[in-house]
């Protein structure tokens, strides 16, 4: 188990595996997202209360779910990076932050565009919206720290610490709608028991959810490869790849 783990964590092995898997992630993401978006926009019936405005859900919920999942992934990488000082974990940590930030921003913007016509306001300071905004600031903090500190290893350590401290915000975002009164609705899909959604509406949503995870996988592999190339500059495997133009 440990030898397998160490081999996977070795930069040349990971780089090669990423090259092999990334295209499949890309294909899966394209297929699932195309199916989900077309189904959501064209085939899903309109909602009994929100009519066509509810179609924002096919972007909003996957983006929001991803914003939390990427944070957990980033924090796991941070744990490994801070304790075991594994280079690959450092690369994953700093690569996950911009992806997470972009999807957190997408969740916030689509939420605002949904809130205005349905609630009557773009923004309110309820527990869900406020904690999701803090999530964006945490991502921004990790990105900023990484850019501000010259030495990549020291930067990764600082980013890792911030990412670990911020982990406390993740359950708050998720459970905010249960713990406190909020304007935001409770969970439709990501909850215990039956989803509170008609099957014809839910099916494209599941496709979009799965699709964004594959998309995240694709982008994360490519970004992690970039970080590995930079940190491993001058090593034999990078030189070899540069010479054969196989990068």
């Amino acid at each position: 188990m440990w030898t397998w783990f160490h081999r996977l964590a070795s930069p040349p092995t990971f780089y090669r595996l990423a090259d092999r898997f990334a295209p499949w992630f890309g294909i899966a993401a394209t297929g699932l997202l195309a199916y989900g978006i077309v189904g959501g926009l064209f085939f899903a019936p309109a909602d009994y209360q929100q009519s066509d405005a509810f179609r924002i859900i096919y972007i909003h919920v996957p983006a929001a779910a991803l914003s939390l999942s990427i944070y957990m992934l980033m924090a796991s990488a941070a744990l490994v990076a801070v304790i075991w000082r594994i280079k690959l974990a450092e690369c994953v940590l700093v690569s996950a932050a911009p992806i997470g930030a972009s999807f957190t921003a997408l969740a916030l913007v689509t939420g605002m565009l949904w809130g205005k016509p349905m609630w009557g306001a773009y923004w309110v300071w309820d527990a869900r919206l406020t904690s999701e905004l803090i999530l964006l600031f945490l991502y921004a903090g990790v990105i900023g720290l990484n850019q501000a500190i010259e030495d990549p290893r020291a930067a990764a350590r600082a980013c890792g610490l911030l990412a670990l401290i911020g982990v406390i915000n993740v359950p708050i975002v998720h459970y905010s709608v249960e713990w406190w009164n909020s304007l935001h609705q409770g969970s439709t899909i990501l909850k215990m028991g039956k989803p509170s959604m008609n099957a014809d509406m839910a099916q494209p949503l599941y496709a979009c959810l799965l699709g964004v995870y594959f998309f995240m996988g694709y982008v994360l592999l490519r970004r992690t490869q970039n970080e590995l190339l930079l940190r491993e500059r001058g090593t034999a495997w990078v030189k070899e790849r540069l010479e054969s133009s196989n990068v």
Partner: peptide, 16 residues
């Protein structure tokens, strides 16, 4: 037209 919510729905998909 999206039942009159075009700006919000297409705005969301556009930003996505």
């Amino acid at each position: 037209n999206m039942s009159g919510y075009a700006v919000y729905v297409w705005g969301s998909y556009g930003f996505a």
